[in-house]
Amino acid sequence: MKRMKSLLVSAVAGATLLAGTQIAQAGESKTNPIMGIPSAALARFGGEYGVHNWVESLFYYIMLDNRINYIFKEFGNVDRQIALNTQLETMVLGGPNEYQGASMSAAHADLGITMTQFNAVVEAAYNACERNNIAYYTCNHLIAALAPFTRVIVTK
C-alpha cells in the first residue's frame, strides 16, 4: 500500500517534472493515524509560521541535550534541518506537502538511532510546545502524526 502510494507520488512528481515545473520529488508522505488529525491542528500550532517557531524551539532543546545533540551536530547546517522539519511537520499536521528532504527511512537508515534517543527528541518536542505555549492536547496531535515514523527512524 505504502509502496503503491510512493510509486504514485513519484509518478506524479515525474509527470510534473516532465511538465517543466520545478517541484522536487516528495520524499515523504503524510502519516495516517487511526484517530485522525483534526483540520484545526495546523491553525492551533499557529500555521506554518507557528510550526517554524516550534521547530526552532525543538532544535534549541535538542542541541542542549547531550544524549542526542551530537547526532544533529554531525550533519551541520541546523538551519536547513529546521527548514526541512518545518515542511515535514506542516505536512503531517494537515498542511500542503512541500517537504523537500529525503524520506524518513532514507534519512535515518545509517544512523543507528536508539529508542532512547528517539524518546529524547519526543521530550524535546514537549518542551518546545511548553516553551511556545502550544496546548498539551494540540501538541499530542503532532506526536500522533509523527509517531508512525518511529518504525523507520529507530533502527537499533
Binding site: T31, N32, P33, I34, M35, I143, A144, A145, A147, P148, T150, R151
Partner: peptide, 10 residues
C-alpha cells in the same frame, strides 16, 4: 505491540 508509538494501527 507498542502502546505508545503505533498511532496508525489499532
Amino acid at each position: 505491540g507498542d502502546a505508545v508509538y503505533t498511532s496508525d494501527s489499532w
